[in-house]
Structure formats: structure tokens, C-alpha cells
Design a protein around this nucleic acid. Sequence first.
DNA 1: TCAAAACATCGACGAACGTCTATGTTGACG
DNA 2: CGTCAACATAGACGTTCGTCGATGTTTTGA
Lengths: 123, 123
Amino acid sequence: MSNAEALPEAAPGRAVAPCCPPLTERPFTAEEAETAAPMFKALGDPVRLRLFSAIASHEGGEACVCDISDVGVSQPTVSHHLKKLKEAGLLTSERRGTWVYYRVEPSVLAAMGQLLAVNAATA
Amino acid sequence: MSNAEALPEAAPGRAVAPCCPPLTERPFTAEEAETAAPMFKALGDPVRLRLFSAIASHEGGEACVCDISDVGVSQPTVSHHLKKLKEAGLLTSERRGTWVYYRVEPSVLAAMGQLLAVNAATA
DNA sequence: TCAAAACATCGACGAACGTCTATGTTGACG
DNA sequence: CGTCAACATAGACGTTCGTCGATGTTTTGA
């Protein structure tokens, strides 16, 4: 695309973290649905789910592509899916030397978990 | 498991409830990913997310189609999406007179919530 | 018995998706 | 320098998806 400037990363897709109430609380508005659906959609592919799980379960919540690219598809396909996950706000990436490390956005897991919360009475 | 089904009524796509460990626990296998991804995929569409939320938040966790069909798409499209949610194991349906009532499968919310569990420091 | 309401199914169409091969870009190292 | 490794991008191709209008099925009720 372009040369890397001093800009670290500025929200590639949309804001994801604090988006919506639990699904069981009240009917989602069209806006809320448009915001939350892409997160589910991003995890709705088996390969992406494996990649995400591999990163999320990796030490430190991050992994380089070479550590997780054994999912049965070609390298460009892995790259494609990681990009999708990144665009959905679920992952961030950082280059360190030759390798690129992907990291799970922690707030995302919390947000999605809250969407599906079964009201465990933690109040 | 307190539910002993006596009627051979269930004809869903696949078992959904107790499928997989948390995403952050260990890398998903191909099998686990193939099992869990359809649930996320089913919620990955804004219209389906609104329908699901409308049903889940409705009184008693169920609603007839006429109560939730105001999502901006045609009636066949609503029917199509409800079928998709049903095939994914997220909903069940029951006919009562003229109306068809859809209900959220409670174990599904628990299962998906567990997938996204953030390990609340149990060690 | 006939009509209307609620919902499902069918068939079609454009858009989006997942995958691949080929190629480009970036950094490390002789 | 040049070359290799890691990863991204581009383009293509078949498949799936979301949507619609038209039609079918089931139930209620006059």
C-alpha cells in the first residue's frame, strides 16, 4: 500500500470492543447488528477459527504466522484469513524482523463473551 | 443433562451444545473448528443476529415469526434466515395453530459463551 | 366449502466468499 | 551486491450466500 509512517495502527475496520448489550437483553437494532455481526462472521470459517484459536492459545496471546500456518491451506490463503480477522478487529499484527506476529485483541473476547453472557450474576 | 427427549422430533444439522474447549485453551483441531464455525457463521449475518436477539430477548425465550419479522427484509427472507439458524442448532421451532414459534436453544448460548470464556483467574 | 392469514419452499440473480497459482515486498545474511 | 526466507498482494475461478417474487402448504373461521 504505502510506506509505514509513525502511525502505529488506527482501527482498520470498525470499533469492536464495547459495542452491544447481551443478545438476550433486548432486540438488537440494525446498527448494533451491523456492528456485531462481522465479528461472528470472521469466526464463522473453520480455517479462521483455527487460526484465531492457535493465536489465542499461544504463549503471550501472540504468534508468528510460521507457527500457525499448518491448517491445511496454502500460505496466501492463511495470509488472506489473517487479514480478514484483522479487518474484523479480532487481531492486530506487528512485524519483528523477518516474522510478523499476530495478537488477539483482548477486549474483543470480552465483548463477544458479554454478547453471549448468560447473566452469571456477577453483580 | 436433565432433558430426556421422548419424541424423535429432533432433526437438526449437527450436535452443537458440548462441542469445544475455550478458544484460548489450545489450538482447535480441524474437527472442532468444523463443528464450532457454523454457529458463529449463523450469527454472522446482521439480519440473523437481529432475529436471534429478538427471539432470545422475547418473553420466555420464544417468539412467533409475526413478532420478529420487522427487520427490513421480505417474509421469505425471514423464513430463510430462521431456517438457517435452526439448521445451525441455535433455534428450535414449534407450530401452534396458525403461528410458528421459534425458541432459543439454551445450551447453545452456554456453549458459545464457554468458547469465548476469558478464564476468570481460576488458578 | 371457500377465502384469508401465517409461514415455507422454489427458482433465479448478483454479490461475496474461499481457494489457488503467480508475483511482489520486506528484512536477514553471506 | 545477491540470494533466500517470510509474508503480502493480485488476479482468476468455482461455490456459497442473501435477497427477491411467485407459489405451495397448513390452519382458522365464516
